[in-house]
Design a binder for these strands. Structure first.
Length: 308
DNA sequence: ACTGGATCCTGCCTGC
DNA sequence: TGCAGGCAGGATCCAG
């Protein structure tokens, strides 16, 4: 689900709501998500103050005042909803997360019930009056507690690759990462050990913008001396551009993704390839049509005419 | 080294 | 109308 732009949007919402606040209640409604919750999860959070809400790849990284990090992965369908502190009267009850939305249609339902969805798995409350609920129908998400000092060495995080919006990501870095690789570009860009945070949507979009075939061997974007080809320069720029634009739009809303305040991201309207099978390729001067193939079990959308 | 497939889950959409 | 099957933003594991 959520790829880098969606996780970054969630991060901003959580940072606004919980930075500086102290956990007063942690209600854990089932023993596991994708993995079991950490031992004594609620007790270990209770009374802790949130120092910062960060992001690494597709993980939310919440630093606590005792040197512990609460790291959260949203999987495919995880979401947080923030119910604001009771300043003013916003209707008396909060809306409920986890409603499903059609990819192209409007909301299937907006009205919330005060009871809560069966997929609300964790509810945090804070001393500033904020309540934050984690909802995850498919339960591919998970939460872990890690000592800050051990974070970089943790098995989940030690192999994570470069941040594509970070200063160190450029064409030269991209070329170095994929030099010598025979795997298709699509697979290489989805590999979190190389570049962290891209998923199916933004890989399709970046390759389309760069005019590169998802089937092409990744290593062909590195010159023999390891430097970037013109294609690598285009791809690095396309990755950064599409992520920047998506973050600015608050991410893409398909099915169940929403901001922590319930608003929808709008970048799905900016898709040029993803989920546009049969539609005209929008690249300048190209008269091709977007097609769909399956690579590594995932749909790839691309134009066979201008993506070489 | 890479690919394909299965797996963890639930729910929506399509087609029969 | 019902129901089975396919598919979905992630990620890991295994066999070949």
């Amino acid at each position: 689900m959520p790829e880098l732009p969606e996780v970054e949007t969630v991060r901003r919402g959580l940072a606004q709501a919980m930075t500086g606040a102290t956990f007063t209640t942690v209600e854990q409604r089932r023993p596991d998500l994708r993995f079991p919750f950490p031992e004594r999860f609620a007790e270990r959070l209770d009374g802790r103050r949130v120092e910062a809400v960060g992001r690494r790849a597709k993980y939310l990284v919440i630093d606590l005042d005792d040197g512990t990090v609460l790291a959260v992965h949203l999987g495919m369908t995880g979401s947080f909803r923030v119910a604001a502190a009771a300043r003013g009267t916003a209707g008396g009850h909060e809306t409920v997360p986890g409603r499903y939305y059609h990819a192209r249609g409007g909301p299937a339902s907006i009205a919330g019930s005060p009871v809560g969805s069966p997929h609300d798995h964790v509810r945090f409350t804070f001393d500033n009056g904020v309540a934050i609920t984690y909802n995850d129908p498919r339960r591919f998400g998970f939460m872990v507690l890690v000592a800050r000092a051990a974070f970089d060495a943790h098995p989940l995080f030690r192999a994570i690759g470069v941040e594509p919006l970070g200063e160190s990501f450029d064409a030269a870095t991209l070329a170095r990462l994929i030099a010598g690789r025979a795997a298709p570009l699509k697979a290489a860009l989805l590999d979190q050990r190389l570049i962290a945070g891209l998923g199916n949507i933004y890989v399709c979009e970046a390759l389309h913008r760069a005019g590169l075939s998802p089937r092409r061997a990744a290593g062909t974007l590195a010159r023999r001396d390891g430097g970037p080809t013109a294609g690598a320069v285009r791809l690095a720029a396309a990755i950064r551009a599409v992520l920047d634009e998506a973050v600015a739009a608050g991410g893409s809303s398909l099915r169940d993704y929403r901001h922590t305040d319930g608003e929808l991201g709008t970048f799905q309207h900016g898709f040029r390839a993803y989920d546009r099978e049969g539609e005209a390729c929008g690249n300048p001067g190209c008269r091709g049509t977007i097609g769909r193939i399956v690579q590594n079990g995932r749909s790839t959308f691309f134009c066979g005419i201008c993506q070489r």
